[in-house]
Amino acid sequence: MKPIIRGRAYILGDNIDTDQIIPAHYLTLNPAIPEEYRQLGRHALAGVPEAEGGLPKGHIPFHDPQTGQSSYNILIAGRNFGCGSSREHAPIALNAAGVEAIVAEFYARIFFRNAVNGGYLIPMESPQRLCEEIRTGDELEIHIREALLVNHTTGDRWKLKPLGEIAPILEAGGLFAYARQTGMLRS
């Protein structure tokens, strides 16, 4: 796990469900096949209505049309991020698009577990409603262990919630690595 994540913010609202993160017609892609894993990245956030993608203005494309990847590696969202289905394609699509961390008020539990157990990205929680404080394109820096978010564009600094008991799983790189480190699984 990187101690500091730097990059540009892409802002979303509340209840971004897994159908918005990766619409169901892309679920025929099998993430166990590397090329299909990459393809999922090209469709990340394809289900978000245009007006709600890249707040506060909206209508900001998430992907760079040249690379098929996103130049926004930090998502800032409101409440209940990742609600809906159990599809692990959701954190995989975000990871494959280049997202390294999300800061939301809180997460739906299956998405949260998938993000952590698969080691795809770091799901941080904020006590404040940062999706109304930060703008798409702002330059951010997240200090993971210190649970601190710095907005270099505005100079704001926000205290986030510490990762707590999931930190060792993320530090290890996911559920399997963690289980091997702790002796649950033979290495």
Binding site: G84, S85, S86, R113, N114, N117, G118, L175, L185
Partner: peptide
């Protein structure tokens, strides 16, 4: 179950919940 609506089976007085691929792969092995 690798589906969020696995919770349906709670109707039978059991603990039933949805999980992801990584978790299900872990359960398959352990």
């Amino acid at each position: 179950g690798t589906d969020s609506h696995t919770c349906t089976a709670g109707a039978f007085g059991e603990f039933a919940t949805g999980i992801g691929n990584t978790e299900a792969g872990f359960v398959l092995g352990t």
